[in-house]
């Protein structure tokens, strides 16, 4: 067991976890942050996406020890209401299992583009979200939501 200290959704937390515990399990089982989902456990679906120091990662592939002293954001602390609202209004949500990961991935790419002053394009969004699978929507509602959120944010 190791003692792990990291910031989750703005709060410093300490947990005792097995050394090779996955970040996904630490969030879900030790911190009861079940908004982060497991769809495959092998880095393919993106349902487990969280932000580590602002960058999206598949938490099923990240050993928790790697986030020591770092900043982790899960859907429960995602803030940034305009993206959530846009997903809810534009058909970006159906069964919802991909939604937390999709929202965090969207947030990360919109933030990056805004920081670089790059325009947000549909093709760019599709590429940025290609690591997050959604089986329900056909992606149209998700892309529409991201475009709306971006329009609203700038």
């Amino acid at each position: 067991m190791i003692d792990l200290r990291f910031r989750v959704n703005g709060e410093w937390r300490s947990v005792r976890v097995p050394p090779l515990a996955r970040l996904l399990d630490v969030l879900r089982e030790h911190l009861a942050l079940t908004g982060t989902k497991e769809g495959c456990g092998e880095g393919e679906c993106g349902a487990c996406t969280v932000l580590v120091d602002g960058a999206p990662v598949n938490s099923c592939l990240v050993p928790a020890c790697q986030v020591a002293d770092r900043d982790v954001v899960t859907i429960e602390g995602a803030g940034h209401e305009s993206i959530q609202e846009a997903f809810a209004d534009c058909g970006g949500v159906q069964c919802g299992i991909c939604t937390p990961g999709m929202i965090l991935a969207t947030r990360a790419c919109l933030a990056e583009w805004t920081a670089r002053g790059e325009p947000c394009t549909e093709a760019g969004l599709r590429r940025a979200l290609a690591g997050n699978l959604c089986r329900c929507t056909g992606y149209g509602g998700i892309i529409a939501a991201a475009l709306r959120a971006h329009g609203g944010a700038t």
Binding site: T34, K37, I75, E76, Q84, A88, V93
Partner: peptide
């Protein structure tokens, strides 16, 4: 209309079977 389950889902609050405590 906005679907009634959307708010819980976009906040990660919807409980799926693996989320049950």
């Amino acid at each position: 209309t906005r679907r009634p389950d959307a708010d819980a889902k976009v906040r990660g609050a919807a409980r799926y079977v693996a989320d049950l405590d």
